[in-house]
Design a protein around this nucleic acid. Sequence first.
DNA 1: GTGTCAAATCAAAATTTGTCAATATGTTTT
DNA 2: AAAACATATTGACAAATTTTGATTTGACAC
Lengths: 108, 108
Amino acid sequence: MLNIYENQAKVFKAFCDENRLKILEMLRGGEKCACVLLEQLELGQSGLSYHMKILVDSGIVQSRQDGKWTHYKINTEGSLYAEGLLKKLTTPNFENIYSNDNDNICSD
Amino acid sequence: MLNIYENQAKVFKAFCDENRLKILEMLRGGEKCACVLLEQLELGQSGLSYHMKILVDSGIVQSRQDGKWTHYKINTEGSLYAEGLLKKLTTPNFENIYSNDNDNICSD
DNA sequence: GTGTCAAATCAAAATTTGTCAATATGTTTT
DNA sequence: AAAACATATTGACAAATTTTGATTTGACAC
């Protein structure tokens, strides 16, 4: 069980690694099977599997099993969630406990 | 000089660490000086400085020097840029070189 | 069943990131 | 100029992440 900050961080981990950004770029062109991703990246099979797990766990990517192949695509729902979360995390909230409207102004 | 993927990753690093998420949460309540952030976090002075540098470099936070104090606040422009970038990175683009409309379908 | 192939898991090594203590820099005060 | 204070930088270490190779699991074909 992860705390709230760890759960939020997990979403953005998808975008914090060069290989994962390359994978997302490829998936923007449509669903791809692991074999196709593998041949475009300078990564071994287990390395790709490692990154795909992080992408799926972040909610940004969705996987579909088809016999012995796994196909991946961008998860629209998860992406919208990430977008909303990013907006929330950067939007002023003068109701929160750290609001300057309460009494947290640096006294100097 | 960073490549395009490293530059994109840099933006989202702001959201990938528990302490940085806590700092952003505090800054949502308005501009804070480092001394105020420091007393709320379980971090030493140099640790806070380390994270503030990452936040500023990501474009999500803006700093303002006032004598010997440094004040930090959320950078609206940088936040909107991050939001747009996230949207771009997760939006289908059938014009790109990996588009299935060209010829990258897994042949199996 | 056995053999083959795709992908996941595991364990070890390599790399990166985060923390801490000490020191340096820059500003204000005296 | 010297002292005091806030923050930045540095280097050493610890912890987390990423890479790699070997092994395992699961699906299909024979």
